[in-house]
Amino acid sequence: MTSATKIALIDSHPLMRECISNYLSGFEYAITLQVDDGKELIDRLTKENVPDVCLLEFNARKKVGYETIKMLKSACPHMKIAIYSMQTGPVENQIPSGADVVISDQTSIAEFKSTLDKLI
């Protein structure tokens, strides 16, 4: 990577957002947007700040994750979407429509970064 990859982080848990942001900022990643939900991300997007990757905490039980992916792909079709979830079940070992990669809840932090590196 020659320049910092721009990442948007969607997670309704401020602690998780801060932890992931702090970890990734130590590498060639720039966390450009941190938001609670997909609608907030869409509202804050401008031509200048469209991220290369969106990290999305995926809530399959409420179908919020599916709706967010659909909104993001419509607004920014070239943006990569990586989903992760702290719940086991519907997203494990499958890629929901529109997502580029699923990061399992069993993934180590090193594997988390490696998955992002491969996606980019």
Score class of each variant (00 low, 15 high):
residue 1 M to H: 11
residue 1 M to S: 13
residue 2 T to M: 11
residue 2 T to Q: 15
residue 3 S to G: 12
residue 4 A to G: 13
residue 4 A to N: 15
residue 5 T to H: 10
residue 5 T to I: 12
residue 6 K to E: 10
residue 8 A to D: 06
residue 10 I to A: 03
residue 13 H to V: 15
residue 14 P to N: 07
residue 15 L to H: 07
residue 15 L to G: 11
residue 16 M to V: 15
residue 18 E to Y: 14
residue 18 E to P: 14
residue 19 C to Q: 14
residue 19 C to V: 12
residue 20 I to Q: 11
residue 20 I to A: 05
residue 21 S to I: 06
residue 21 S to A: 15
residue 21 S to F: 08
residue 22 N to W: 11
residue 23 Y to N: 00
residue 23 Y to C: 03
residue 24 L to G: 01
residue 26 G to R: 12
residue 26 G to E: 10
residue 27 F to K: 00
residue 30 A to S: 15
residue 32 T to R: 04
residue 32 T to V: 15
residue 32 T to Q: 07
residue 33 L to P: 03
residue 33 L to D: 02
residue 35 V to F: 03
residue 35 V to I: 09
residue 35 V to N: 04
residue 36 D to V: 10
residue 38 G to D: 02
residue 39 K to Q: 12
residue 40 E to R: 07
residue 40 E to M: 08
residue 41 L to W: 05
residue 43 D to R: 12
residue 44 R to K: 15
residue 44 R to N: 14
residue 46 T to A: 08
residue 46 T to E: 14
residue 48 E to K: 13
residue 50 V to Y: 03
residue 51 P to E: 08
residue 51 P to D: 07
residue 51 P to L: 06
residue 51 P to C: 05
residue 52 D to G: 00
residue 52 D to L: 01
residue 53 V to R: 06
residue 56 L to V: 05
residue 57 E to S: 07
residue 57 E to C: 03
residue 57 E to I: 00
residue 58 F to Q: 03
residue 59 N to Y: 08
residue 61 R to E: 06
residue 63 K to S: 15
residue 66 Y to D: 14
residue 66 Y to W: 09
residue 66 Y to A: 12
residue 67 E to D: 13
residue 68 T to H: 14
residue 69 I to D: 01
residue 70 K to V: 10
residue 70 K to D: 14
residue 70 K to R: 13
residue 70 K to F: 13
residue 71 M to V: 03
residue 71 M to A: 09
residue 71 M to F: 02
residue 72 L to R: 05
residue 72 L to T: 02
residue 72 L to A: 04
residue 73 K to A: 06
residue 73 K to S: 04
residue 74 S to K: 15
residue 74 S to W: 05
residue 75 A to T: 12
residue 77 P to C: 04
residue 78 H to F: 12
residue 79 M to Y: 05
residue 79 M to S: 00
residue 79 M to E: 05
residue 80 K to F: 09
residue 80 K to D: 10
residue 80 K to H: 08
residue 80 K to N: 09
residue 81 I to D: 04
residue 82 A to I: 02
residue 83 I to Y: 00
residue 85 S to F: 05
residue 87 Q to W: 10
residue 87 Q to Y: 11
residue 88 T to F: 13
residue 89 G to A: 06
residue 89 G to C: 04
residue 90 P to S: 11
residue 90 P to I: 07
residue 91 V to Q: 00
residue 91 V to L: 04
residue 91 V to E: 09
residue 94 Q to F: 12
residue 94 Q to W: 13
residue 96 P to S: 08
residue 97 S to E: 12
residue 98 G to V: 06
residue 98 G to H: 07
residue 101 V to F: 01
residue 101 V to Y: 02
residue 104 S to A: 12
residue 105 D to C: 13
residue 105 D to V: 01
residue 106 Q to P: 00
residue 106 Q to N: 14
residue 108 S to G: 13
residue 108 S to H: 06
residue 108 S to P: 07
residue 109 I to C: 01
residue 110 A to Y: 10
residue 111 E to G: 05
residue 111 E to L: 05
residue 113 K to C: 01
residue 113 K to M: 00
residue 113 K to N: 01
residue 113 K to R: 10
residue 115 T to R: 14
residue 115 T to Y: 02
residue 116 L to K: 02
residue 116 L to A: 07
residue 116 L to M: 06
residue 118 K to T: 00
